[in-house]
Design a protein around this nucleic acid. Structure first.
Lengths: 232, 232
DNA sequence: GTCTATAAATCGATAGAC
DNA sequence: GTCTATCGATTTATAGAC
């Protein structure tokens, strides 16, 4: 008696979300019409507005459904790491693994839409849609605050500005990692080994190498003569 | 007498391309209507179809206009590096700099649309639009072949598979680097220093760190007990 | 080459019967 | 909660005058 609305809507709602998720990642938000969604989901056109109110609200729910759980897992893992460490700063590798590893585990799930969703999420970070960006920013506020804080404590000698940028770079690498081979025919036929199980160690190695890279490595060895060499 | 079509179209064409470039990166392809473009460009609606034939052809020309020149610069720089090396393998840092450095130089040009275009390009690698992907793949075929080949020779001990993936990761990091602070309000207010001049060394340091990261770094130190430890 | 006017299709959203 | 039918707005693209 505590649930007022959902009477016998066991599948319709989920089917709409699943169909929308697939079509959004395949065609984008704007290019995906509500008719395409209801057609693929096998439900009536009016069902979307009945269950979600509008197309924008549907888009939001597509993200909320999975993102809330993903970030819950991330925070739980960080909680455990910090509890085990007992006050000591965490190793950067653990922090990175807790944040990006959970995402890749979800991305490896090709049977329940996790892979589809993560591709959608990765692309949406740089999506031009204003209200989606706003929504994601709110959904990520806490988890970002926590993980960045952990990285700051873990790497006290690295300027926070630098950590922030490198975290940003890492998200870009992860996004492309998940988009993977089917993202662009650019690498078509070049990947002999696209085994999802190997993606995690591949990416993690790259991310940690980038995160730990010497700060002045590039600036200290400028390419050839390049103007005033006395600067900085 | 060699130019049949362009009689006195000195600005209209360019104005359309400039307006389209800005609107595409701001709203995406689908959400940008031809009326929005012609309105911002100050030209007539029919002008787009007259000059480009269709919206899709316009999109293609927006990319072709700048991408051809960018990849020409990349190849020229690689040619010079290889000529100077006289047969010896290049240093990975030089190769990475030739590919990603040129892109970031273009991205630093905020006055002539270079920054706008590079943001658009970075987002489009994972764009769902099929014909844009196809077009980009063709446009990148030669430059990718050359740079990947140079990296293979530069890092003969690293499996090509691994180099391929890391190059892919680097493109993701670059994409986010260019999308930068205004891409997502996720980091809003967190970046104190978003100086474009510092972005190149920042990114280059990260990329080289990732490219040179030990291959088995992560796999060799699995997190806790994780099933059959005898495998691999 | 540039314009107006409009064709033809598709969009999101809703009203109202069941 | 699901359906049909449709409204009103917007889209790309084009025809034809100038």
């Amino acid at each position: 008696m505590s649930a007022p609305t959902p009477r016998h809507t066991p599948e319709t709602r989920s089917r709409i979300l699943d169909a929308a998720e697939e079509l959004f990642v395949e065609h984008g938000f704007e290019a995906t019409s509500m008719r395409m969604i209801t057609s693929q989901a096998g439900v009536n056109l009016a069902a979307i507005n009945y269950h979600f109110g509008s197309k924008d609200a549907l888009i939001q729910e597509v993200f909320r459904r999975r993102l809330t759980e993903l970030n819950r897992q991330r925070l739980a893992m960080l909680d455990k790491l910090e509890a085990d460490a007992g006050g000591a700063p965490l190793k950067p590798s653990r922090i990175v693994e807790a944040f990006f590893g959970t995402a890749l585990v979800l991305a490896a799930d090709t049977e329940h839409g996790g892979h589809t969703f993560m591709r959608l999420l990765g692309r949406t970070y740089t999506e031009p849609n204003a209200f989606v960006r706003q929504f994601l920013a709110e959904e990520y506020a806490e988890v970002l605050e926590r993980f960045l804080g952990a990285l700051y404590r873990s790497l006290p000698d690295v300027p926070r500005e630098e950590i922030l940028w490198r975290f940003h770079f890492m998200m870009g690498a992860m996004s492309y990692a998940i988009a993977g081979t089917d993202a662009l025919q650019l690498f078509a036929g070049k990947f002999d080994d696209a085994d999802p199980a190997r993606l995690l160690p591949r990416l993690m190695s790259f991310l940690l190498g980038g995160l730990r890279a010497p700060l002045a490595e590039y600036a200290a060895r400028p390419a050839g003569r390049r103007g005033r060499s006395a600067a900085a």
